[in-house]
């Protein structure tokens, strides 16, 4: 077997794959944050909790109702997205006339409540969720062993990201959305129900987070804290990429996942902070973010 800079290729590609999987979650979550921020002008701090909720609802569907992974992929985003819509109507909608900071504080409070309730009920040790039988096993690619489920996570996330990009950039609905992001008053004057669009957008962003949660359930154990630490990294990803561009969020998410994976191979001590270091560099060199527009 050949070696690369003293690293066996199985280790290198294995870590790259893990990085790509983390990157998938960064991409979906930062995409959701960007879509929500674009229209609502709030940072959804509860995004990590909603991702975690997605994993938990999938676990509940399986253990209480016997509904398996594939149906969960469809049902969970709808259920959690509907929950998001309720939150938006009851609480977040009251804050649009205030400073953005209040939206951040409100959703932070919501995240604490959701995490605390699930921690009370299920503890913090984590619940197992097994890989669906269709995706068990793996492929030997010669240079590495690819578990089927991990390959599926990357493909499914890419597909969802590209579909979201397509809807927002290439369809009439997306055009309304982009127009409302630029100037909601004018779009409302053309007879489009902007408040309803805002509500549905929030629901969609939350559904994206829940979808990521279902994908993550078999990879990581289902755990009330799984979203809290992730969301802070995703914030850094969002600062690096800038929230102005949908494609930018996707590219930055996957790219930073890969960088993190590479760091784990060559300098493991720094792997947990490498994204924050990159954030510092980006702030120095291009404060608006790689794909951001200057404020």
């Amino acid at each position: 077997m050949f070696e690369l800079l003293g690293i066996p290729p199985q280790a290198l590609f294995g870590q790259l794959l893990l990085g790509l999987i983390n990157g998938s979650f960064y991409a979906i979550l930062s995409l959701g944050l960007a879509v929500i921020f674009g229209l609502l002008n709030i940072i959804n701090f509860a995004h990590g909790a909603q991702y975690m909720l997605g994993a938990f609802v999938a676990w509940m569907l399986l253990n209480y109702l016997g509904i398996g992974y594939w149906w969960a992929l469809l049902i969970v985003p709808i259920v959690v997205g509907a929950f998001g819509i309720v939150l938006e109507r009851l609480m977040i909608a009251r804050l649009y006339h205030l400073d953005h900071l209040y939206g951040l504080l409100l959703t932070f409070g919501l995240a604490l409540i959701i995490q605390g309730l699930l921690r009370n009920q299920y503890g913090i040790s984590g619940l197992p969720y097994s890989i669906p039988p269709q995706l068990a096993g793996g492929q030997n690619l010669g240079f590495m062993f690819l578990p089927n489920y991990r390959g599926w996570v990357v493909v499914a996330s890419l597909a969802v990201c590209v579909a979201t990009w397509f809807v927002i950039e290439k369809t009439r609905l997306g055009a309304y959305l982009r127009a409302a992001t630029e100037n909601p008053t004018l779009v409302g004057a053309f007879g489009i129900n902007v408040p309803r669009m805002i509500t549905l957008t929030y629901g969609f962003g939350v559904a994206l987070a829940a979808f990521a949660g279902v994908l993550a359930a078999p990879v990581y154990s289902v755990n009330p804290n799984m979203g809290a630490d992730l969301i802070i990294v995703v914030f850094a990803v969002v600062v690096i990429g800038g929230m102005g561009s949908i494609l930018g969020s996707i590219v930055t998410g996957f790219g930073l996942g890969l960088v993190e994976g590479l760091t784990k191979v060559f300098y493991p001590e720094a792997s947990s902070v490498v994204i924050f270091v990159i954030m510092a560099i980006v702030l120095l060199v291009k404060p608006a973010g790689l794909f951001g527009r200057a404020a």
């Binding site: 609480m91 504080l105 409100l106 409070g109 995240a111 604490l112 921690r119 009370n120």
Partner: peptide, 13 residues
């Protein structure tokens, strides 16, 4: 236990 977190969240909201 976790009730402290929950109550803090409620106070935030």
């Amino acid at each position: 236990g976790a009730w402290v977190t929950i109550i803090q969240g409620v106070i935030f909201v």
